[in-house]
């Protein structure tokens, strides 16, 4: 395999006396979907916040394209090409899709020395990008509020990729979605991966992870048990690792493997 885009080496993060991360190593390669699994409180959020520049690691190093990196704030990480799509999206419901798509990155054209917002370009690109992602808009002026949750996630993902994200961190993108919408988002992840972007997919749903993941890292109480490739691990094993082993095994029988 080629060189990883980002390598988080033995990352530790302490909040006062609490050890949130106790030496986590994760690599993300271009064009792969790396699933980060873990139960609530396992340290997933802390880990991705460290990756996206919100937190500074207490110990360990971040290698971005082979070079050691220190992100002073999220802006640095975004500049470098690490984009995060949050559960609570950076979308404004009353604004049109194209205005949302280019929010903060508006294309300009100059007429009579005055810089104007190039709406034709914005509309065209938005329609193109949305069609690539399989969303048919009524028009670029359709308000984001009329889109479903899954479609909004897709707009946010398409936007991040369009503006040069090399690593895309998706923080539980499917946790609040229905079946149909989830499959849309998973399909989007697949499309983005094929464009050579490294995707970090955070979830506690093993099925969703297995549907698109190339590699799986399970976090448990701030530690990892290593990374497994697709096909090397069964859903049951992943589930057990996330839950920390025993308790779920006893439940499993009565629930009939539905978790």
């Amino acid at each position: 395999m080629s060189e990883p885009i980002i390598r988080m080496n033995n990352i530790e993060k302490h909040f006062g006396s609490v050890i949130a991360l106790a030496g986590v190593t994760v690599e993300v390669f271009p064009g792969e979907c790396h699933c980060l699994l873990g139960d609530n409180g396992a340290g997933k959020s802390t880990f991705i916040k460290t990756m996206s520049g919100v937190h500074k690691p207490t110990k360990g190093e971040i290698l971005f394209e082979g070079k050691p990196m220190e992100f002073a704030d999220p802006r640095d990480a975004i500049e470098a090409g690490i984009a995060t799509v949050h559960q609570h999206l950076a979308m404004i419901p009353m604004m049109s899709v194209s205005r949302n798509f280019f929010m903060g990155n508006e294309p300009l054209k100059t007429r009579l020395g005055i810089p104007f917002f190039d709406r034709e370009y914005a509309d065209r690109v938005t329609m193109e990008e949305m069609r690539k992602m399989g969303i048919n808009l009524r028009g670029p002026d359709q308000a984001v509020g009329t889109l479903s949750g899954g479609e909004r996630q897709t707009v946010a993902i398409a936007r991040a990729v369009h503006f040069g994200a090399k690593v895309l961190i998706l923080d539980e993108p499917t946790s609040a979605l229905g079946v149909r919408q989830t499959s849309n988002v998973l399909a989007t992840i697949d499309k983005v991966r094929k464009q050579g972007v490294g995707v970090v997919f955070i979830s506690h749903n093993v099925r969703h992870a297995l549907a698109v993941g190339d590699r799986f890292t399970v976090l448990n109480r701030g530690k990892t048990f290593g990374t497994a490739k697709r096909g090397e691990i069964t859903p049951e094993e992943l589930q057990d690792l996330m839950a920390g082993g025993q308790e779920l095994a006893t439940l499993e029988g009565s629930l009939g493997g539905t978790v």
Partner: peptide, 24 residues
């Protein structure tokens, strides 16, 4: 309606937090 700043006006009033996250 025709400038970058106009888009920022809409964004600032629509959802200030989301706008900030997008660099407005």
């Amino acid at each position: 309606t025709r400038t970058r700043f106009g888009n920022w006006i809409f964004a600032a009033g629509g959802d200030a937090e989301a706008a900030r996250n997008s660099g407005v």
